[in-house]
Design a protein around this nucleic acid. Structure first.
Lengths: 239, 239
DNA sequence: CGCAAGATTGAAGTACGTCAATTCCAGTGG
DNA sequence: CCACTGGAATTGACGTACTTCAATCTTGCG
């Protein structure tokens, strides 16, 4: 199985064997977590950068009123926190959503790796810019789309992101989240999330089978969600 | 007047005279725009990176239903689009909100500049990570805070960001936006934005004088907004 | 001084939240 | 193999924070 980070970065630029080796080497310290387990919490200044190899995790904050806000989903190939290689500390927490396999990369190692190899640094930067683009789209979705299209849009995105790391089968993928977690992500109540999912099923756009999300009418869903995948920047990078 | 980009990056790390000179040199091609003028539009692959020297601009998208969504405010010192130095194209547009002075930096120049100077590249990367952190906080705000606190939170942020580039006087700053633009930012109607501003005035937290926003009770406003400035990463960078 | 954009107000509708049951289901132990 | 259990999904009734529409009032500016 190829390293999912390598796979992801190669969407942006071809990596040399040497570069791939460096990345592979860095991801040798692998640890396993159960679901709902914190990897880093706010204000930490961890000594490691974390790369998700298997499972889903999420960035989140807890509000004084008790609300949990999920601001991003992390899937295999995603780096949790190059931030800490550059920023002062975490302004949010990261926790697993499903069981996960996570590679721990020492922060210093990451730093020298980037300093010594501009191409690699650039590829990693590219990955954070894509993350930022996703965040912008979520902001649009949460702020300006009605609840049903919000849910539809999220499903479209996670279908494509899952596909990009080889985790789809036809148009279905594992969505290992509860409706409450989905609701905390899209800024709505779990009750309403439930109703919107039912509606999408009734519209014939999706089916679910346990934790598996099956997109029955891909074009229909994309259209309904007003989904433009350009923000995922998946077309393969610049020459 | 010092270059606002230099000023900003020095929040992260001390720059050498040589590094400052390189940045100054790069920002020699300056152009002026009136308000509501596009600098880059979606799907562009512009030949220049744009640095805001004076005025306010915003990242936005237009939705099929006609909604305009403003996803970020750019103020002096902010880079509009290092994205295009790395990504395939713009997934959103950038337009001025007030009259602006903008420096045009050739994309290729930016690329070689970063490639040749890792410290500078790192500082620029840091800036994009801060931007990402702001985006996360907006997502929290828009998705999970009631409208009155949403507005309050935005005012807190823009007060601190303005202060960081020397654009405040006591606790007041220029907010050159219409209520409709503010509403498009926070995902609410202009009518409701108007009412929330009135409420904040009635609570004695703010006053306005034309386009000037005056924070009358800073602690009160911070408290009401549940504002934690950690996400702005303004304490000065790592050693 | 006059005009257009922006700010403000009121009234009426609605998409969503909250609360509280009830049902479903995967996992566990007997 | 089945009964038990606790979390998740689902349902219904009801309340409310927002939106929309439409009018009026204010302000900056030529």
């Amino acid at each position: 199985m190829p390293n999912p980070l390598v796979r992801k970065l190669e969407q942006f630029t071809k990596l040399s064997d040497e570069e791939k080796r460096v990345l592979e080497d860095a991801t040798s310290d692998v640890r396993v977590f159960g679901p709902r387990h914190d990897i880093i919490v706010e204000d930490d200044r961890p000594e490691n950068v974390h790369l998700l190899l298997e499972g889903w995790a999420g960035r989140y904050k807890l509000l004084p009123n008790g609300d949990r806000v999920i601001m991003a989903y992390l899937i295999p190939g995603d780096l949790c926190d190059i931030h800490v290689a550059l920023l002062n500390g975490m302004d949010h927490s990261i926790g697993t959503l499903s069981p996960c396999r996570v590679a721990f990369i020492p922060r210093e190692r990451m730093n020298t790796l980037m300093e010594e190899n501009w191409r690699l640094a650039r590829a990693l930067w590219w990955a954070t810019l894509v993350e930022e683009a996703i965040l912008r789209e979520w902001l649009v979705t949460v702020g300006h789309r009605p609840a049903d299209r919000r849910v539809a849009h999220l499903i479209c995105e996670m279908l494509l992101r899952s596909k990009a790391v080889g985790l789809t089968e036809d148009d279905s993928f594992e969505l290992p989240l509860t409706q409450e977690e989905l609701a905390d992500t899209m800024g709505m109540s779990n009750v309403h999330m439930n109703r919107m999912l039912q509606q999408l099923r009734a519209q014939g756009l999706i089916t679910t089978n346990g934790k598996r999300m099956i997109v029955k009418d891909r074009d229909g869903l994309f259209g309904f969600a007003d989904f433009n995948p350009n923000y995922l920047h998946q077309e393969g990078g610049r020459a």
